[in-house]
Amino acid sequence: MPKKTRPDTVPPSQTPEFWQLRLYVAGMTARAVAAFDNLKRLCEEHLAGYYEIEIIDLLENPKLAAGDQILAVPTLVRKLPPPMKKIIGDLSNEERVLVGLDLRPR
C-alpha cells in the first residue's frame, strides 16, 4: 500500500533529494504500527513533499525479504537517495533515526 506524497510545484526530475523509503514489517503488529506512525511524522516534519513510503508486509510477500536482506522487523530502508541505509527498530528514537537517515550530522 504505497503512499505517495508529492508537491505539485516541483517536478520529480528536478528534485535530486527525492526520498524513497521502504518499511518492512511482519504483520500489522503494534510495533509495526508504531514504526509507521513514527516514520510518517518524521517525514512530514523534515521531508514534506519529497518522499514516498512503501510498506512491505513480509507475511504477505515473504520473497521480498531476501532482496533487501531483511532480518529484523521493522526495518526501514532508504532506497533513495543513495547510499542505501537501513534502520531497524520501531523508530521511536527520533534523534537516532535522523542520524541514520543522514538528515542530521552524526
Partner: peptide, 28 residues
Amino acid sequence: MDYVHVERSEIEETGEYDLEGLFVRLDS
C-alpha cells in the same frame, strides 16, 4: 538456498525489533 548478508555499518538501530524477517525467510 538463501544468502543472508548482514552489514553492521549499514544498520542503525532505534527502538524495539525482532528477527521475524529471518523467520519469514526460513519459513518461506
